[in-house]
Simulated scan of single mutants.
Amino acid sequence: DTKQKVALKRKIAIVPQTMTLDRSLTARENLIFHAKYFGISKQQRDTNADELLKWFGLKERENDFVKSFSGGMAQRLMIARALMHKPKILFLDEATIGLDPQSRRLLWDKIMDVNKTGQTIFLTTHYMEEADVLCDRVAIMDEGKILALDTPANLKKMIAKSNKVETVVMEAKPDFIKDMKKLKSERFKQEGNHLFLYSEDGKTLVPKIMDLAAKHKVGVSGINMDATSLEDVFIHLTGKEFED
């Protein structure tokens, strides 16, 4: 019923990926207006606004109009506004999309600070590194279906326990590829002249790859070894590259 809907709205807050601040108002006015909507007393909304503006590094700009804010500042203010009524659950939809790397990292720090207070956060993101850094549990979805749900560490163990070895060759000769697939690994993947092997001990593969390259007279322009990423898991589960 209506009372239940009103009660539910008081317990949640949503920060959409599009900017919904009133650009004709100041930063502080945006927060105060939001708090008034939820019936928060003047004393409490002033206190909340002071705390959140300071917390998100916007106190010195509280009386500036939002239209003068950068994308990163506006995004921080949107999260601050969402927290004005002390919600139980905070939903962040693509919170860092369109931000430069520095602004994105700053917002990551603020999101982690909010989470450390005990705030429950649901985050949707296309940035797999972001999910890895910020989330305790990650659900990988494709076409509206949850394909896997676990901690980032456990998800990455699904396809390899530790390393991804990338070999960049001048020419991907069929016989060389055939022998590469015979090497002991959990998985092999080819993307043009970029060859990937996933193994618990990637270091032991490097000399074997070089031996095979010499045997088949294949030029190697580089070998890189990285830890398996959530993007690798996404591709493994969906069979397609991650889309923006």
Rank of each mutant, 00 (worst) to 15 (best):
K208C: 10
F69S: 06
Y127Q: 11
V233I: 02
L31S: 06
I235V: 11
K54Y: 12
A172M: 10
N30W: 04
I97A: 15
P87K: 05
I140T: 00
G219K: 09
L197T: 01
F38P: 12
V138R: 00
D226C: 03
K157Y: 05
R45H: 09
A227R: 14
D142M: 04
D175F: 11
V114D: 00
E129C: 06
W108C: 07
I140R: 01
N154I: 01
D244P: 06
G71R: 09
V218I: 07
T18P: 07
G72T: 00
G39F: 12
L134R: 07
L52N: 07
M84R: 03
D244V: 14
V233D: 00
V165P: 05
M170F: 14
H194D: 13
H194S: 15
D50C: 08
G71M: 07
E94Q: 09
F65P: 10
E200T: 05
T204P: 06
A13F: 10
G192P: 02
A153F: 12
Y127G: 05
L52H: 07
L155R: 01
K182D: 09
L237W: 02
Q44C: 10
D179W: 00
A27S: 12
H216Y: 08
D1G: 15
D1Q: 15
K59H: 13
I121A: 01
K59D: 14
K42I: 12
A148R: 03
H194I: 15
K189F: 14
F65V: 11
F56S: 09
H85D: 03
M141N: 00
I140Y: 01
L123V: 06
V6F: 11
E186A: 00
L183T: 12
R61A: 13
S229D: 08
K215R: 08
I111E: 04
A172R: 02
R23E: 15
I40V: 13
M112V: 10
L53E: 00
H126I: 02
I209F: 08
K164P: 04
L58P: 03
D175Q: 14
A82K: 11
D201G: 06
I159M: 01
F33C: 08
L25T: 10
E94P: 10
L230H: 03
A95I: 06
A35G: 11
V15C: 05
D22E: 15
D1F: 14
D132T: 09
E29G: 05
K88R: 13
W55V: 05
I159P: 00
D50T: 08
H216N: 10
W108R: 07
A160C: 07
K9V: 10
A27M: 11
L8F: 15
N115K: 14
H216L: 07
T228R: 04
G72F: 04
D113V: 11
Q4F: 14
I146S: 02
Q43K: 09
T228P: 00
G57H: 08
Q17P: 12
I12F: 05
Q75T: 05
L52P: 03
H34N: 10
V114H: 00
R104E: 01
Y198N: 10
